[in-house]
Structure formats: structure tokens, C-alpha cells
Amino acid sequence: MEIFDCISAVARPIHDFGDEFMSDDATAAIGLRAGFAPGRGFYCRGRFGVLGEASASVVQAVQGFLGPDLVIAGWRAGRSVMPAEEAAACYTQAVRTWGRAHISADADVEHFNLLAQQLIDAADADALPLFAGWRAQPCPVDDPVGAAMQRIHVLREHRGACHLAAVRLCGLSAREAMVVNLGVEQATRYGWREPHPAAANLISRWQRAEQLTDELQAPLYATLTDRQRAEFARLVTTLTGAPTP
């Protein structure tokens, strides 16, 4: 399988599987049991806790795609519950727990873990701090299914960080990119206040940003052989339960 064919095959399943985890009531329940109030505290403090005790404005700048009010409120709400490092560890456990409950029993997680870790190790993390923080989270050797879900999350963070860089390079704001990609209603759901419909000239910029995101990820997938890329795409499809391309 060619590099860009593989990227195209796995990008959406990895993104959507991670989205399912983040939006699941079972994930929110873990945060509630850990002491977080209902809302975005566990999500923000847990996902972005790998950045350390950064200010809310810095967290917002790093993550990019969620509305600033949502992120700042969630980050500050979680601060009194536990330190950032502890919250990130708790969120990591939630990632693994969700994976054990949702990854297909038919998936060869051992093979997936080998290939996924090869991709993760090959990544240049310069200018991608959220990815770098998640890559640094310890990954268990005695929980292959949980580890597979954690690696999915890390790869999702890599593409997200690359996409944020690509969006800005193409002259789009994060708000504009969210509206182009998801529409006004969904952009509002992700915390953007009264977003306006996207102007027609922004659509081509977003399309270029998508292409540039693929290009930024290409060095990772170049470390796999054609056969390994085909295997990885098949494994992601099986593991996430995505429709066969």
C-alpha cells in the first residue's frame, strides 16, 4: 500500500474511535468517580494534563480546535481536583479501560502495537507539544488491548497537532477550520461562540490544510514497508470496527 493511501485509510477511523471514547458517558463517569464535577473538567484536565501546570491560555493555544471558553473553564475547574500530571495519568487509565471494552476481540493487538509504536517512535515532535506529551506517557506491557487504545490516542494527537499547524499555515483560524469541516451547529457544540458560516474561499484553504496534514504525517508511514502499511490499515479497520475501505 502506498503511503498516502494508508494515511487516508486510517485517519478517519483513528479520529472517530478516539472521539467515541472522549464523548462516551462511561468516560465521563470515570472522571466523576475521580472527583471531577460534571462538565469538561476531566476532559480538559486529563487530556491536556500532559502539558503540565500550564496557564489556561497556553493550554488553549496548544490544543487549538476547541473554543477558548470551553477549554479555559474546563482546565480551571479541574485544577482543584488533582495536579495536571495525576489527571493525565487518570485520563490515560480511562483511555485503556475504554479500549478494553470496545476494541474488537478479532483484532491482532500485538501486531498492531508493534506497527503503531514504530510510527510513534518515528515522529518528529518539534512544534507538536500535545503529541509529545502523550507520547511520553508510559504504555503498559501487560495490557496489550489497553496499550493499543493508548497508541490510537497518541496517533490521533499526532494528526490533530499536525492539522492545527497546517490550518494556520494555510491562513485559516481554528474557528474557521471547525466551521468548514463540521458546520456552524457542530462548531458551536465544540465551544465556539456564534460562529459564522464559512466563506466559499475558505473551503479550498481547508482542503489544502488536509493535504498538508497528510504530508506532515508521511514521514511516519514511510518507515513501514508497503506490506506493513497494508497490514496496519487492515488492523486499524478491525480494531476500531470501521467499515472496510
Rank of each mutant, 00 (worst) to 15 (best):
V81Y: 14
R159M: 09
P195N: 05
G133N: 07
A187N: 04
V109F: 02
Q118R: 15
F65N: 01
S173W: 01
V58E: 11
A89G: 05
R12Q: 01
R12V: 00
A88F: 06
R156Q: 09
C90V: 14
A107Q: 03
L70E: 02
G183Y: 06
C162F: 02
L182P: 00
F112L: 15
A122E: 08
A233N: 00
P13F: 05
F48K: 01
T92V: 10
A242C: 03
H196I: 09
I72N: 10
D126A: 15
L220F: 08
R45G: 04
A77G: 05
G183N: 04
N181R: 13
V10A: 04
C170A: 11
T238P: 07
A198I: 07
E185K: 12
G171T: 03
P140E: 10
L119R: 04
Q228Y: 01
V180I: 05
L32P: 02
P195I: 03
A123I: 08
A127C: 10
G31L: 07
V179E: 03
F36D: 09
A132F: 06
P38I: 03
E194R: 13
F65V: 08
A84K: 08
T213R: 12
A187F: 02
Q60R: 07
R229V: 09
Q217R: 12
Q217A: 11
C162K: 03
A199K: 14
E157P: 07
A174I: 02
L128F: 09
M178R: 10
R193P: 10
A26T: 14
Q117H: 12
R227G: 15
R234T: 15
A209M: 01
A242G: 02
L169D: 13
A187W: 05
G74V: 06
D106N: 09
A147K: 08
L70A: 13
G39I: 12
A127G: 09
V141L: 15
V154T: 14
H15D: 00
A9Y: 04
A101Q: 14
R175Y: 03
D143K: 04
A77E: 15
A107C: 11
G133W: 03
R229M: 09
T237R: 06
L239H: 00
Y221K: 09
L239E: 00
V10T: 10
R208L: 14
V145K: 06
A230C: 08
I72L: 11
L172E: 04
E110M: 12
A222D: 15
T237V: 11
W134Y: 11
R135L: 07
S173E: 08
P83R: 04
I152Q: 04
D214L: 07
Y91V: 04
W192H: 13
F17A: 04
T240D: 03
R151C: 05
L155R: 01
L115G: 04
D5N: 14
S55R: 06
H15E: 00
Q63P: 05
P195W: 03
H102I: 01
H102A: 00
P195V: 05
L172K: 04
C90T: 14
R100G: 08
V81C: 14
R234E: 15
G146Q: 09
A56C: 07
D142H: 13
C6S: 10
A61C: 00
P144W: 12
V59Y: 01
D108P: 02
D69N: 10
M1A: 14
